[in-house]
């Protein structure tokens, strides 16, 4: 079972949601990707207001409804709107079958507004997929680095965090979280630079690395190749490509 922990369904100009979903599923079929976790919405909104946060989650729900056996929803939460985020978790995870939480770039990960979200994630056993990047060209002011995620994770030792993009600067990100066992780096969101997966397995272990693509902006292929093209064992590839994520998400 191959499960992608990290996609966003964002149509091309003029393309409908259903067309984008079909195009995405066709690409997954060609590469043997069984399921994909969908988050955010139909576009990137750096600082979503309450209305936009509702709309973006509704977009993901309607995406999942197009192929419920293939798409898994993650609830897009915002520390700027903690009460609304808790409502959205009830609506989409407790009653709607979403199996994770997504945090993006509206605030740094260690923002206090994330605490209520993480406490509820712990109660429900939901993994929290959190954006991280370290850009030598400069992060956005509210864009988290792996250090911000480590701070949040230490406040919530009973939550499993998926560190999106392995910190972007993956050689730094992997080392930053090496000794924080409930942070799971994902594989996605940068070029398929050789050595990534081998280093991740060496530093955090195959049991803590999770396949993700960051499609539809990224190619499934370029991110999948980081795992299938790595010099690691087939058992390690199976863990990374799906077994680890299946273990992290509630049934």
């Amino acid at each position: 079972m191959v499960i992608d922990c990290h996609i966003h369904l964002m149509p091309h100009p003029g393309e409908t949601q259903a067309q984008a979903a079909r195009r995405t599923l066709a690409a997954m079929d060609r590469l043997g990707i069984d399921k994909a976790c969908v988050s955010l919405g139909d576009r990137l909104i750096v600082q979503p207001n309450a209305t936009e946060l509702r709309e973006q989650n509704a977009w993901v729900a309607s995406t999942v409804a197009l192929a419920p056996d293939r798409f898994i929803g993650f609830v897009y939460c915002s520390p700027n709107h903690p009460e609304l985020s808790l409502e959205l978790i009830e609506e989409y995870a407790v009653r709607g079958g979403f199996r994770g939480i997504k945090l993006w770039v509206c605030q740094l990960a260690d923002h206090a507004g994330n605490d209520a979200i993480c406490r509820r994630a712990a109660q429900l056993g939901l993994p929290v997929l959190a954006h991280t990047w370290v850009k030598v060209t400069g992060n956005m002011p509210t864009e988290s680095t792996p250090d911000h995620l480590v701070t949040l994770a230490r406040r919530h030792p009973d939550v499993n965090f998926i560190m999106a993009h392995a910190g972007g600067d993956w050689e730094r990100g992997l080392r930053t979280v090496r000794h924080v066992p409930h942070i799971y780096p994902d594989t996605c969101g940068n070029d398929p630079e050789a050595g990534f997966t081998e280093l991740a397995v060496a530093l955090v272990g195959a049991e803590r690395l999770v396949f993700g693509s960051d499609a539809t902006g990224r190619s499934f292929a370029s991110q999948l190749a980081k795992v299938t093209g790595a010099d690691i064992t087939d058992d390690q590839k199976r863990l990374i490509l799906g077994d680890n994520l299946e273990r992290l998400m509630p049934a």
């Binding site: 690409a27 060609r30 590469l31 070029d191 398929p192 630079e193 050789a194 190619s219 499934f220 292929a221 370029s222 999948l224 190749a225 980081k226 299938t228 093209g229 790595a230």
Partner: peptide, 12 residues
């Protein structure tokens, strides 16, 4: 880059 990425892009 992982060479396999280009191969899989053609497949994708």
């Amino acid at each position: 880059f992982y060479l396999e990425a280009a191969v899989l892009k053609i497949q994708e």
